[in-house]
């Protein structure tokens, strides 16, 4: 019952908001180039469905590549940091600098260096930079949180550092890693959109570019359709990663246990 309400209540809210939106736009006679009605957006979506889906595929490809690259790089660095205080002291300040520098500001440089002929690679790098940090900081914390006594027990039985890492530290860090990945999934999408914005027309072909293009042509309904598609994609990424988290932790971690 409670689960049903969790789904039904936001859905009812959405339907009411859309209905009010539809009625208000028609009643006040708002021009379609200022605010299209939901029915206009649906019509624009239906008319452009194949090209919008192609754009979505482009955006999703970059997002997925960036997410995978960010997760792997962050996991590698987190292991390096947790095994070597020296490496952490050398590299951690630069990881923070990368995190606090607005990616929009360095995106043009990255595009310039990698080149407009390899725009997918450039976009992937930009999006990966955005997604990278939460995985790094969460996983580093997780690797450090291993039970001291369990580590001592491993040492008592002559375990190597690699065995302690593999058998104790990495499983301990898994919930933290997954939590970082959940944030990173959304950030990878945001980073991809930013990269497409910066890459601009001619180079980028993803959903963000469709938004700019539709705006330039005053096809505001198509713009909204692309925007809605982007939002739904973000929700699906988050839901998929939440599901992965639940599935991996359901047997043992407090966060995934239903009471």
């Amino acid at each position: 019952m409670k689960k049903l309400l969790d789904i039904a209540l936001p859905l009812i809210g959405l339907i009411l908001a859309l209905a009010f939106w539809q009625w208000k736009v028609r009643h006040d006679g708002v021009p379609v180039y200022v605010l299209p009605a939901p029915s206009d957006i649906a019509a624009a979506f239906a008319a452009n469905v194949s090209s919008l889906m192609a754009s979505l595929a482009t955006t999703l490809t970059v997002t997925a590549l960036a997410f995978a690259a960010a997760t792997l790089a962050a996991l590698f660095l987190a292991i390096l940091f947790s095994e070597s205080r020296l490496a952490e002291r050398i590299f951690h300040p630069y990881a923070v600098v990368l995190q606090v520098t607005p990616v929009v500001a360095i995106a043009p440089l990255i595009l310039l260096w990698i080149g407009y002929d390899r725009v997918t690679l450039a976009e992937t790098l930009i999006a990966a930079l955005v997604a990278f940090f939460p995985v790094l900081s969460n996983t580093t914390l997780g690797l450090r949180s291993a039970d001291f006594n369990l580590v001592d027990l491993m040492r008592l039985y002559g375990a190597s550092r690699a065995q302690i890492l593999w058998r104790v530290r990495l499983p301990t860090a898994l919930p933290h890693l997954l939590s970082g990945m959940k944030t990173a999934g959304g950030l990878a999408l945001i980073g991809t959109v930013v990269a497409e914005f910066v890459a601009g027309s001619g180079a980028a072909t993803g959903l963000a570019w469709r938004i700019i293009e539709s705006g330039n042509r005053l096809e505001i309904a198509t713009m909204f359709a692309a925007l809605a598609l982007l939002a739904v994609t973000g929700v699906i990424i988050f839901a998929a990663l939440s599901l992965l988290e639940y599935w991996l932790l359901r047997r043992w971690h407090e966060s995934a246990i239903r009471r």
């Binding site: 039970d147 006594n149 369990l150 027990l153 491993m154 039985y157 002559g158 375990a159 065995q163 058998r167 104790v168 499983p171 898994l174 047997r251 043992w252 971690h253």
Partner: peptide, 22 residues
């Protein structure tokens, strides 16, 4: 140890097997 100090991510048998695995 004072706490059981088990690996929460795996079952009792695998926990007991740890010294043998090592």
């Amino acid at each position: 140890f004072q706490d059981a100090t088990l690996m929460p991510w795996t079952d009792a048998l695998t926990n007991v097997r740890l010294p043998l695995d090592l």
